[in-house]
């Protein structure tokens, strides 16, 4: 905390008031409601509700479908993080290295940040369409009969590709700024040692980027969990069927499409716990970062 503080007793409250009241009304009140309704089975129209204790949680956790969605979410998160991190690391490393055109590449590689996830999903629908999709056309030459929305794994592939495409820019920007903060003298010293570019990267640059990479991993996990909603909703064309889905999408489906308030709320609370764990992890990581820098 700052040493030099103001000591006016009511003014800080006034400054905090807008934030606190918005949070109270639009965050805490709904969140508490979600927790409460996770213990009830409720008539969708709100005419009656029955207290059922932990039944919603038990049924959720025992359900094969929940387990299937959880497994997909983990695999999806891993694939999206892995591919978007490695592609952007490669691109950032090269963009940092080239002598000419660096800023042009930088612009070309980052602007997709501003594309909304559902628009990315819509482009995905066009690219992976069964009858005229460019990707479908292309892989058909290799004997892959790509069927978006029919084949579970094909749909999953499309989801991963679109989600990676959308996430490369964020990772790229962070990696690049991480690379630029590495003192030039370190690279020059390595050059004198005359290592090959490849081993120079792994022995010198990568360890220096590791904190950035760890931090980005959290960002990517959060992204894959929550921000891919629009992409998934577009790619399945709002019909879940035999398509893969993430846990957040399932909360939406059961609550909003299926009107099962209790079951959906229980899933929300489970997600809250997951995010809590992630956040604790993130806070500890940030503390360490601040400590080091």
């Amino acid at each position: 905390m700052k040493r030099a503080n103001f000591s006016n007793p009511w003014m800080p409250l006034l400054f905090l008031l807008p934030q606190l009241s918005i949070i109270a009304i639009f965050f805490y009140y709904p969140a508490v409601q979600a927790m409460q309704s996770s213990f009830y089975l409720e008539d969708p129209f709100g005419f009656g509700s029955t207290f059922v204790g932990l039944r919603n949680y038990v049924e959720t956790l025992l359900s094969d479908q929940y387990r299937k969605a959880a497994i997909f979410t983990v695999v999806f998160t891993f694939l999206v993080s892995f591919f978007s991190l490695s592609i952007s690391l490669l691109l950032a490393y090269k963009a940092d290295k080239v002598l000419r055109g660096g800023s042009t590449y930088k612009t070309l590689l980052m602007w997709v940040y501003a594309v909304a996830p559902p628009v990315a999903g819509l482009l995905g629908v066009m690219y992976f369409d069964q009858s005229f999709g460019l990707f479908t056309y292309f892989v058909a030459d290799f004997g892959w009969d790509f069927k978006l929305g029919v084949d579970y794994y094909d749909t999953a592939t499309a989801m991963v590709v679109v989600a990676v495409w959308k996430q490369v820019p964020v990772n790229f920007i962070f990696f690049l700024s991480g690379l630029q903060s590495i003192p030039k003298s370190i690279n020059e010293a390595a050059l004198i040692d005359n290592n090959s570019g490849f081993s120079r990267f792994w022995t010198i640059t990568f360890p220096l980027l590791a904190p950035t990479a760890f931090f980005l991993l959290i960002i990517n996990i959060t992204y894959a969990l929550f921000d891919t909603f629009g992409i998934i909703d577009m790619l399945v064309k709002a019909v879940p069927a035999n398509n893969p889905m993430t846990l957040v999408y399932k909360v939406y489906l059961d609550g909003f499409r299926g009107n099962d308030l209790g079951g959906s709320s229980a899933q929300s609370v489970l997600l809250m716990i997951l995010v809590l764990i992630l956040t604790v992890f993130q806070f500890r990581l940030i503390e360490r970062r601040i400590h080091y820098t």
């Binding site: 579970y152 879940p240 035999n242 499409r257 299926g258 009107n259 099962d260």
Partner: peptide
């Protein structure tokens, strides 16, 4: 009741039949 979800279950399982799962 909850027939919207029941239909979703059907759609899923029919998808699995037709893809041979």
């Amino acid at each position: 009741g909850f027939y919207v979800q029941i239909r979703d279950v059907m759609n899923r399982e029919y998808g699995r039949i037709l893809s041979g799962e």
